[in-house]
Simulated assay, not measured.
Amino acid sequence: MCTSPPRKTTTNNVTPAAAEPLPGWVDNMNGPTGVLIGAGKGVIRSMICNGELRSEVIPVDIAINGLILLPYHNSRLKQKPQQIPVYNLTVDDAKKRSWKWIMDVGRDLGLKYPFDVGLWYPDGNMTTSKFYHTICTILFMWLPAYIIDFLLAIFGQRRFMVRVQTKISVGLEVLQFFTTRNWDFKSTHFEQIYKEISEEDRKIFKINTNDVDDYEYMKISILGGRQYVMKEPLTSLPKARIQLRFMYVLDRISKGLILGGFIYWASMRLGLIDLVRHGIEAVKH
């Protein structure tokens, strides 16, 4: 019995499907999908990420097609390689977008196609400062989670926000390992397979990412997460947009009150209020 050398295959962050079985199809919140949903719901307010680094992601259907084609292609080789080949399943270097581009486009599309019943207006940010991230996490993620769970307990409802926040924190820690480091996966062998397979196989097993429009793919990824993970039909978009406008007004009013309260407190501590009051009284007299 003859055996050929094993092939080593590595994949990057797997994202929603580009085409099969449906555009945007996804069945979990792992990786970038969870960030898009969490940010769209207003749950994720901060993330450690170097926006200048390029993302290493690949649509799930292209990754699966590649995994199917690898053994098929290698079984047809007339001459087996002397060394174990390594296949990195990733997109072409020219197609790799920066994390900043992904976050900015994701935020823009998240406002055009909002999720239902978000926790707050989606207005998070990314940073490379762990100190700033920790402050934002405590004030805008953990503190609201405990307050909401406290109110739910008072009204006899089931608490869930702290549990959700814990899962999000674990997911962010895993993803931040990739978003704060520079990765350089060469997919030369993977690209070579596309050149060597027949035209018919190219139509059946699509692995060429050059045909994927990045902006359109981000759009279907958000809509896919909305439909297939959160179970929110597209018919609810008009209602979601009304809720988003309400959350926007509430967000701005809340920030205005907090900022105004801080300025008033600082003015009192510095004696500016008394100074202004005495000045007004002096003018009157």
Results as ranks from 00 to 15, higher is better:
Arg181Phe: 11
Val43Gly: 00
Ser75Tyr: 09
Gln192Asp: 09
Thr9Arg: 06
Glu191Trp: 08
Gly24Thr: 05
Gly34Glu: 03
Asp123Ala: 15
Leu22Ser: 07
Pro122Val: 04
Val26Tyr: 00
Lys206Ile: 08
Tyr194Glu: 09
Thr3Pro: 00
Asn50Ile: 03
Leu67Asp: 01
Val164Pro: 00
Asp211Gly: 10
Ile168Arg: 03
Asp251Pro: 01
Leu259Tyr: 10
Arg277Thr: 11
Tyr132Leu: 14
Thr127Gly: 10
Ala18Arg: 01
Arg252Phe: 07
Glu200Met: 02
Gly260Pro: 05
His73Ala: 06
Ile135Gln: 05
Asp92Tyr: 14
Thr11Ser: 14
Asn210Asp: 10
Phe177Thr: 14
Leu259Gln: 05
Pro16Cys: 05
Phe177Met: 09
Arg107Asn: 11
Ala94Cys: 07
Ile220Ala: 01
Pro23Ser: 04
Phe190Gly: 01
Asp149Ile: 06
Val212Leu: 14
Ile207Asn: 02
Asp251Phe: 15
Arg252Asn: 11
Pro71Ser: 09
Met141Glu: 15
Arg252Tyr: 07
Leu77Ala: 14
Pro5Gln: 08
Ile193Cys: 11
Gly224Asp: 09
Glu20Pro: 00
Lys284Cys: 05
Asn125Val: 14
Asp201Glu: 15
Asn28Arg: 03
Arg45Ile: 02
Pro16Val: 02
Gly24Leu: 01
Ile48Lys: 11
Lys95Asp: 15
Phe131Leu: 14
Ala266Tyr: 12
Asp251Ile: 03
Ala63Val: 14
